[in-house]
Design a binder for these strands. Structure first.
Ligand SMILES: [Mn+2]
Ligand SMILES: [Mn+2]
Ligand SMILES: [Mn+2]
Ligand SMILES: [Mn+2]
Lengths: 217, 217
DNA sequence: AAAAATATTTAGATTAAACTAAATTTTTAA
DNA sequence: TTAAAAATTTAGTTTAATCTAAATATTTTT
């Protein structure tokens, strides 16, 4: 049984390892967790003792099979709770993260599984991220960044890369959300900004914004 | 903002002070929390520094106004979560305590208030205990122990004193629960056991059992 | 290939929350 | 009203999780 802190580290290692290849560096976790690198080194040793990560001095860590499973169990709970907060408790998608960060540590298999049933076995959370099922398997459908969508081809927004409250509220103001139909009308060569059709309105977004929106072509 | 541990102590002090008069003794909290008396003394000092309890060496503690409010906020969350687990997640009343013990520490006013709304402002938890509302006020209706119910007078079970899983499952087996109509048919002088009508069946219960069932006459 | 910059680890300290064992105070009972 | 029992506190340790500052290793740049 893990402590709250080890669970957060495992999850952070999992997330970083998903978005980059090779071993996970001390500093990257320090940034993610908001701790000093020396603290991260301590934790790497602790996780290594528990066989949850493979650790070589100065070479970073990688999750063992057991480590991945433990991380996925936390991710599963995190995303189920986020779904619950949005679908039943009137939370907006930019408000759920902080609370799910706490709820993901509640220890009760029955609670997790009943919550999943209550939500009718959701496959994706409010940010479009896949929810591992009871067997920790998750359905990941193919997606591309909005920057990669060919001009004039329609796509549907199915997720975001940046989950920050700032970005999510910005999308709210632009009326872009999961399910919104998107189409690139024109790509500006000068600054890579995009003229897009979002639902019924046309608007301009920067490259940086487009790089954080996933679409299904 | 409190830590998980200080919250559990405050709640324990609150509960003990409810069921007995005067200051709360070190040992009583040690038993409740499952810690050594020396640890309890340490915590009493810490809570006293934060002005959550009044503490005099060797004389026990009593909650300050602020301490009562903090305790009630935890109790509110605990009972709301218990209600949710039973009403929506198929938990039995004997299974909820351990999970609510964790959930009560989640910090989010919005979560608590939205949960309360979702449950339609329940006034009592699955064990018949009153749920403090947003203003921390709780409706306590008058209740008596089954031992005090006059022979042949009908009453309705509205709560239990002992919340242990063992006792609750025993009541399940006897088909006694919140809402069950109860009537004492005969009181045995020899051992104080009771012959009762519980819903549609008649059965015999000991004094010890009757002392842990609250009824509304 | 050395120097400089960056990343990582080590050493030592701190804080919260527990513990054990010993000392002290209060309560109960002879 | 003293002696014994029970309750409580103190003193000193332990463990998890963090930190700072200094030392060391790796990577990048000249
Ligand atoms: Mn977390
Ligand atoms: Mn999410
Ligand atoms: Mn608790
Ligand atoms: Mn209860």
């Amino acid at each position: 049984m893990q402590t709250l802190s080890t669970e957060d580290y495992l999850k952070a290692i999992y997330h970083v390892s998903q978005s980059s290849s090779g071993a996970v560096a001390t500093t990257s976790i320090a940034k993610q967790i908001g701790a000093k690198p020396s603290s991260v080194t301590d934790m790497f040793k602790k996780l290594s003792d528990q066989n949850l990560v493979k650790y070589q001095k100065y070479q970073g860590v990688s999750l063992t099979n057991e480590g991945v499973k433990t991380a996925l169990r936390i991710v599963r709970k995190h995303r189920l709770w986020e779904s619950f907060l949005v679908s039943h408790l009137n939370f907006n998608w930019d408000e759920v993260h902080q609370v799910a960060e706490q709820l993901e540590h509640i220890q009760s298999e029955k609670l997790t599984n009943e919550l999943e049933r209550f939500l009718d076995y959701p496959t994706h959370d409010p940010h479009g991220d896949p929810i591992p099922n009871r067997a920790l398997f998750m359905k990941t459908y193919s997606k591309i960044l909005l920057t990669e969508l060919p001009v004039n081809k329609e796509g549907v927004c199915i997720g975001v890369k940046d989950n920050s409250s700032g970005f999510l509220r910005y999308l709210d103001r632009r009326q872009i959300g999961i399910g919104t139909t998107l189409q690139v009308l024109h790509r500006e060569d000068f600054d890579d900004s995009l003229h897009i059709q979002a639902g019924k309105s046309t608007l301009m977004i920067t490259k940086k914004t487009a790089e954080n929106i996933y679409v299904k072509p």
